[in-house]
């Protein structure tokens, strides 16, 4: 079987090729996940479409109270953006602690979202930002709230002819003082999250989104003044951790409880 592999240099070409090949057309951005899966014989793409050279999908732009991040923007560029660090601190912190310098230069936010892993570190912060995922296809553009986008591990609402174009961030009040992203892994660099918490604290309520402890991430809002027991009950109603190579479900649960208690009380 002859493989098809192309570099696309403009959006129109990308949409046309993706429309033509549909599910068979695998988009490769940073490649940090796809190439590993190809090497492990987990996937054998017939059509590889590289968007590494597609400038239209790169960059971070401020628009009034929103910020738009191109799907092909590298994690390194997000980490080094003062706009992100000052207004969307949990995303900055998530990216700062991801992978390694080399992989942050390669990996992109669109790739992290498109993979739809419950351990994807950029995803829980997006829930605090009321983020919208902008999808394009030959038929046009649509915008999906981050709360509706994910349907399970590796599953999203995207159609086979669609691509992730950009991510819109709202709620630009997430600063180092009132918010953050805490990740627990086996070591600092190069570790996949065992459990993680993105959080925001206000005078009235506290918001959380947990990573790696449920198939779909939820935005959780907790009022002030809950007792220890009530808090525990609330947390338990949102998480369904699993055992895997990195940790047991009991360990994951305890980690989340400890992290939330530290933030809440």
């Amino acid at each position: 079987m002859n493989k098809i592999f192309v570099n696309v240099e403009n959006l129109a070409d990308l949409l046309s090729i993706k429309g033509q090949y549909g599910k068979k057309g695998i988009i490769i951005s940073g490649g940090t996940d796809i190439v590993v899966r190809m090497k492990n014989n987990m996937i054998d793409p017939e059509v590889l479409i590289s968007i590494k050279k597609l400038a239209e999908l790169k960059g971070i732009v401020a628009r009034k109270t929103k910020v738009i991040i191109g799907a092909g923007t590298s994690l390194d560029e997000i980490e080094n953006s003062t706009l992100i660090k000052e207004n969307y601190y949990p995303l900055y912190q998530a990216v700062f602690n991801m992978a390694s310098p080399q992989l942050r230069n390669m990996g992109t936010i669109g790739g992290n979202i498109g993979n739809a892993s419950p351990a994807g570190d950029t995803i829980p912060p997006l829930f605090l930002m009321d983020a919208e995922i902008i999808l394009y296809s030959k038929k046009g553009k649509r915008s999906i709230s981050v709360t509706e986008f994910f349907k399970g591990p590796g599953k999203t609402v995207m159609r086979d002819d669609e691509i992730i174009h950009s991510i819109i961030l709202k709620n630009n009040y997430l600063t180092e003082k009132n918010s953050g992203y805490i990740k627990v892994g086996q070591r600092n660099a190069l570790a996949i999250s065992i459990a993680s918490v993105a959080y925001f604290k206000d005078k009235k309520y506290k918001r959380f989104a947990f990573g790696s402890v449920s198939p779909i991430i939820h935005l959780i809002e907790l009022k002030f003044g809950l007792s220890d027991e009530q808090l525990l009950k609330e947390i338990e109603s949102y998480i369904t951790p699993i055992d895997d190579v990195r940790a047991t479900k009991e360990y994951r649960k305890q980690v989340i409880i400890n992290l939330v208690k530290d933030i809440y009380f």
């Binding site: 490769i28 490649g31 940090t32 190439v35 590993v36 590289s50 390194d76 080399q102 992989l103 390669m106």
Partner: peptide, 24 residues
Amino acid sequence: GECGACTVLLDGKPITSCLVLAFT
């Protein structure tokens, strides 16, 4: 992409060349 032994600079930035498809 985890050990870094294959690190080279790609357009001035360090990357792990074992995870970069050459055609890209």
